[in-house]
Amino acid sequence: MNRVRLATVWLDGCSGCHMSLLDMDERLLDLADRVELVYSPLVDHKEYPEDVDLVLVEGSVSSEEDLHKIRKIRRQSKILISLGDCAVTGNVPAMRNPFKTAEVLRRVYVENVSVESPTPNQVVPALLARVRPVHEVVPVDVFVPGCPPSADTIFWTLTELLEGRRPDLTGKTRFGA
């Protein structure tokens, strides 16, 4: 049997959604029979593969790197799921949006440090002027709000998709759940 090619991605988020994913516990084994995890921060693939069937995206789009990644992910995936409030709403990462990027960097690298360190400007990807939810950047197929969405919600969403249904999350989860 051809297993569904599943990827999970971690953009600007706390990884809580991935923790919640792992919280599915023994149900992960059920899933493992039906999906192949082709890319994830939990596994050791370096390149986002072609032809991904399902991708769970955690986190908001906050940096040039996120932007580059999410566009590539969109191109190479059939169904894109915004997982969790950061991906769906911008959430905590977006709390910097009312401020200018320079103000944020100064706060973090100058005002709030005891040992002076230079503001990173090379290796670390440049911040976007505004943090944005995924659907403001690329089309999103399924939204799963929650901070994080519960393991039950994630499992239910995935099984619905695997059954070929479009999950209706009305009443199942909410912003901040």
Partner: peptide, 14 residues
């Protein structure tokens, strides 16, 4: 939640 709002289509104004 009651209105099935899973995301907000309008850009956030921040």
């Amino acid at each position: 939640q009651a209105h099935g709002l899973t995301h907000v289509q309008f850009p956030y104004r921040y």
